[in-house]
Design a protein around this nucleic acid. Sequence first.
DNA 1: GCTGTTATTAACAAGATTGTTAATTAAAGA
DNA 2: TCTTTAATTAACAATCTTGTTAATAACAGC
Lengths: 211, 211
Amino acid sequence: MTIQSSTSERAILEAAEREFMSKGYDGAKTQSIAKTAGVTHAMLHYYFRTKENLFNQVFKEKTGIMMQSIISAFQDTKGSFIERLQKGIEAHFDFLAQNPDLPRFVINELISKPERAELLKERVKDVAGNIAGKLQKEMKELIAACEINDIKIIDLLLDIASLNLFVFIAFPIVKNFSGFFYKSDKEFLEARKKETTQIIINRLLNKQYAV
Amino acid sequence: MTIQSSTSERAILEAAEREFMSKGYDGAKTQSIAKTAGVTHAMLHYYFRTKENLFNQVFKEKTGIMMQSIISAFQDTKGSFIERLQKGIEAHFDFLAQNPDLPRFVINELISKPERAELLKERVKDVAGNIAGKLQKEMKELIAACEINDIKIIDLLLDIASLNLFVFIAFPIVKNFSGFFYKSDKEFLEARKKETTQIIINRLLNKQYAV
DNA sequence: GCTGTTATTAACAAGATTGTTAATTAAAGA
DNA sequence: TCTTTAATTAACAATCTTGTTAATAACAGC
């Protein structure tokens, strides 16, 4: 009947992950986490000492995954710029589909306690170095050669982020309406993925209208 | 030295608004709200009885404003479909610029307690009746006449919502990067507004690429 | 000025929540 | 086996949080 340390610790972490992700830091209660994990709540403090500590461990892991997903999505080097961009958007969307509450969690916690940005500074640098640098250079060349429309890299990335992330950030709400137009969540999300790539490529390749 | 009832009640509501909007329901504390309002915390319960009650009043008002802003933005009837759409997107963006933490607040509270959707059911019907109905009819005709590209109304609205809302939902984070490309927040937001209209119009008017 | 209503205060109560501690049990190594 | 370390438990403590209540003060109408 005895439970080994590593098992308890892991159980707590997993329960914490679910609780923090679904309720946020303030909404999560250590007692509830301990209960879900099947241990006394003293165990939680034994392993992690404070709620903040436990949270930070979860937060760090989640932001790490999120940053890594961006690098993975855009690291392919085969094909044209547009082809790679499309593949990247789709890969990132697929990642989000498997981690749908990640963006809302990270954004909320980052905003409610901005100091937490410290915990992912390194990862942000990774992404900036890995993606933004190369991307910017390539885009400048293509823009100069008139192969894609003029656009600042931050605007392109924000367009993609907005379109890819928003559906998931607001999914429980959006879901109420998608049912009128799509048979299933899956079909709806597939359509969103396609729509996002479509709209981004149109932005880059078609002639621009004065706005 | 005496403070009149209506003054206290209003002070509490205003303090509650700020506290709930910035910290969310769980993060907000009635004592803190009372302190900010400059009244004893018994006063808060005297006027609003429960935290939930006070919250609902704030929430109802905020969602009302949010829904109304959508109706106002898209109610103009002059000009072509594209012109009205562009004006609507810009008006909605301008509204958000003046209420930047509204979307995150509403989305979060709606998701953490889905029952709250009840509080805005009527307003949603207003918007659906006011916007979606007319829009859908008009779009179908334009699509049939090949004047705009084929797109489901929900996808168009989601594109607009994503692009318009995301910047504000994640503003405190995005802000850290916009500084490299834009001189001021204002300039950055102006660029985002333009970018959003640009990308939407391109989506509707330009030829589509196979994706 | 008297009366009834409304506003305000201070004190308290119940329960939740985070965290600690001392004692107990299990595990591991010599 | 004995000893040391790690894991676990139950009980407690401090603080926070929401909410109540009884007493007091302000006010409005008569």
